[in-house]
Amino acid sequence: MHELAVAQALVEQVEAVIVQHAAMQASLIRVHIGPLAGVVPELLATAFPLAAAGSRAEHAELEFSHAPITVRCQTCGAETEAAMNRLLCGACGDWHTQIVSGDELLLESVELETVPT
């Protein structure tokens, strides 16, 4: 359950953004998690309220987005979608590929309340 550690890191970052923008609290947090990041969105959603309790992210909604796994073939140059445990080129089948997207673990954006509600 390392998602709790990830949730705590997330709350810390959101707090920093709140301070930086002199806001009251966060209302929406968008997180971008690729399938290869090793973090399960559902588990992060479960861990988030525990990590956020008492913080200014406590009442924020958590929203997830993800890009499909895309690889670029170093042999034929094609860019294709791939499965998590089969990162082969969809065009020529070679395994010499590079991840283009799918391993992201990003705090994308935060919506802040700037006036007291």
């Binding site: 990830v6 890191a9 806001a23 705090l107 994308e108 954006s109 935060v110 802040l112 700037t114 006036v115």
Partner: peptide
């Protein structure tokens, strides 16, 4: 009534 802040920072940036 709100500010949207684009962060795009690795979640584990502190680590």
């Amino acid at each position: 009534g709100a500010t949207a802040v684009s962060v795009l920072k690795g979640l584990l940036a502190k680590n």
